[in-house]
Computed example of a mutant assay.
Amino acid sequence: MEALLVSTGIVALAEIGDKTQLLALLLAARFRRPWPIVWGILAATIANHALAAAVGQWLSNLVPPAGLHLVLALCFIAVAIWTLVPDKLDTEDAPPISRYGAFMATLVAFFLAEMGDKTQVATVVLAAQFDAFVMVLIGTTIGMLLANVPVVFMGNAAAGRLPLGLIRAVAASAFLLMGLYAGWLAFSS
């Protein structure tokens, strides 16, 4: 249960202000059909984070516990720093105008936008730390949905009022605490 809750919270916080959240806003404005966009986000996130969690599980079986904790500590601290940097949507990340509609445009755009993104890296690290593939996958997916679905439905109205700097600082602090904890585990074992 800890893996589910931590994964949900970490990814939901890290996702606020992320390029995929901006992508959700762009898709909502382009297609004006929220449910196919939400289903596309869900499908893309499950596929992307399943791959990331599988890599995390593989790494946890490959690296000895003390070494894994040290790698996790460094990764969490790196993601903490990365979280403090505001994201922007690059023009090449813009959603394709798809003849297949909102669902396929969202599925493809979100899957590609998440490749190498901080939430994908966080999913790898969380799966390696918790050794709970399903709970991490469910948690990170819920976190993505918590951050992106309101953007799809509310658009830009609420997004401009969120204290993004504070949210980034809280998310970075959470990653830093997990990094320090993993570092403590690496040196105490």
Rank of each mutant, 00 (worst) to 15 (best):
H49S: 07
L51P: 02
L51K: 00
A52K: 05
A53W: 07
V55A: 12
G56C: 08
Q57H: 00
Q57T: 08
L59H: 02
N61M: 02
N61E: 02
P64K: 01
P65K: 04
G67R: 07
L68Y: 01
H69T: 06
A73F: 03
A73Y: 02
A73P: 05
A73K: 03
L74C: 13
C75G: 11
C75P: 00
F76S: 05
V79D: 06
V79I: 15
A80D: 05
A80H: 02
A80R: 02
I81G: 08
W82C: 01
V85S: 04
V85K: 09
L89R: 11
L89P: 09
D90S: 14
T91S: 14
A94S: 11
A94E: 13
P96G: 13
P96I: 15
P96S: 09
I97T: 10
R99V: 00
Y100A: 06
Y100R: 12
Y100Q: 08
Y100C: 00
G101P: 00
G101C: 01
G101V: 00
G101F: 01
A102N: 01
F103Q: 07
F103T: 06
F103S: 07
M104C: 08
A105S: 15
T106C: 11
F110R: 02
L112K: 06
E114A: 09
D117H: 07
K118Y: 02
K118S: 05
T119D: 09
T119N: 15
Q120G: 03
Q120E: 11
Q120Y: 03
A122F: 00
V124H: 05
V125D: 10
A127N: 08
A127S: 15
A127Y: 04
A128T: 07
A128Y: 03
Q129Y: 09
F130L: 08
F130H: 12
D131C: 00
A132T: 03
A132I: 04
V136D: 09
I138T: 08
G139L: 08
I142P: 07
G143S: 14
G143N: 13
G143A: 14
M144K: 04
M144P: 00
L145M: 15
V149W: 11
P150H: 14
P150E: 13
V151S: 10
F153A: 03
M154Y: 15
M154C: 06
G155L: 09
N156Q: 06
A157L: 14
A157C: 04
A159G: 11
G160M: 10
R161N: 09
R161Q: 12
R161C: 07
P163R: 04
P163S: 04
